[in-house]
Design a protein around this nucleic acid. Structure first.
Lengths: 214, 214
DNA sequence: GTCTATACCTCGATAGAC
DNA sequence: GTCTATCGAGGTATAGAC
């Protein structure tokens, strides 16, 4: 029979909460790389597990399914982008919104994995029963209405011409951004994403910008 | 011992050549549908075989591998597009090239499966060891240089401004086309591809067109 | 929270009869 | 030219010990 000592140094369980978050972070990191290389269809949770130093079942403990893992990846992507575009809490208005997209292109030039993730998942998720289909629809509609509102504000503020076709311009701008990213992935050395996007914004300004009036 | 009859009606072997071509056509048709739905990664030759009324091994007799089947699909796609753009043997010059792209968008509006095939395969083939990677690189470089040449001709003919940045404009136009097709797949009712592409071409003309001089 | 073991499926491709 | 049968690999997910 043994009594516990009066004063014990509790093993302290090494902050399990903290460890869990660390594991999740590593897993998402590895998933980003895999999706960037092979798309969601092409990614395997076994390989992601191996790359993040955990067993396949260990991974599934944190993310109960492949789709759940994808959701975590997309959530981080969206969070990062929003942080970048609206980090200071303010929403760019008028031409500032288009200038912000040029900055976004510049930032994306430094993160090819994320560009690849976005390009691949967007294309796959076009399918109606893809696990990211709803995400894609939300992404398009929110990005598009953000740009449309920026244009409406620009018109209201007098920096943009009232005849500017907001929906067409916003769809075209988003499409161009997506399309250029794809070309850049195929040929990173040969394509200057920033120059392309900037040229497009110049073109829009040359057609629709009004002289700043007070 | 038996002699062959003097006059025989040869069994005629039911034109095996003809049958083979018919089988191949059906298989490619089914593959187009499958790739349109699930991409190349997501397509399975077993399902394609089932959909085209042949066994899996029967399919592999005509196309020895999955990659070979994809190649056949892409070949038909490219052949159809070239037929449409250069059907009469002439190459559109100057603004006619951009107008031809508007027509192409109109035609694509009637062929969602082909748009889906293109969007998915393009995104997948961005990966360096994808079986369609070389095809994609060739596609981009040939489309791009066609447009660049059309612009150079336009400048030479005096219908386009010499300051028009040919490479940027051509990359942007191709990118916009690709990006709009993707948006259209997600929301066919809400996106008018032709209107978007036409607006872009209008924009370019408003900036770079020169008054026709004799 | 992480592991091993495994169930169960689908895939691409081959072998060989007809 | 088309079939059945089968191989071997690789996929997601679950069960249960530690």
């Amino acid at each position: 029979m043994s009594f516990p000592p009066r004063y014990t140094i509790e093993p302290q369980t090494r902050r399990p909460r903290r460890r869990a978050e660390e594991s999740r972070r590593q897993i998402v990191d590895a998933a980003v790389d895999q999706i960037a290389d092979a798309g969601f269809h092409g990614m395997s949770i076994a390989e992601v597990a191996a790359a993040s130093g955990i067993s396949q079942s260990g991974l599934l403990h944190h993310f109960p399914s492949k789709a759940a893992l994808l959701a975590a990846v997309l959530e981080r992507h969206e969070h990062d982008d929003n942080e970048f575009l609206f980090g200071d809490g303010s929403t760019p208005l008028g031409w500032a919104a288009f200038d912000a997209l040029v900055s976004l292109a510049a930032r994306n030039s430094t993160r090819p994995e994320w560009v690849a993730v976005f390009v691949r998942v967007s294309a796959e998720a076009t399918e109606a029963d893809h696990p990211a289909h709803d995400w894609l629809k939300r992404h398009y509609s929110s990005t598009s209405s953000w740009l449309v509102e920026a244009i409406e504000d620009g018109v209201r503020l007098g920096s943009m011409h009232p005849d500017m076709p907001a929906r067409l311009v916003s769809g075209n701008t988003i499409g161009l951004l997506d399309g250029i990213q794809q070309q850049w992935l195929v040929n990173p050395k040969g394509i200057d994403m920033v120059a392309h996007v900037r040229e497009h914004v110049h073109l829009l300004k040359s057609r629709w910008a009004l002289p700043a009036s007070a």
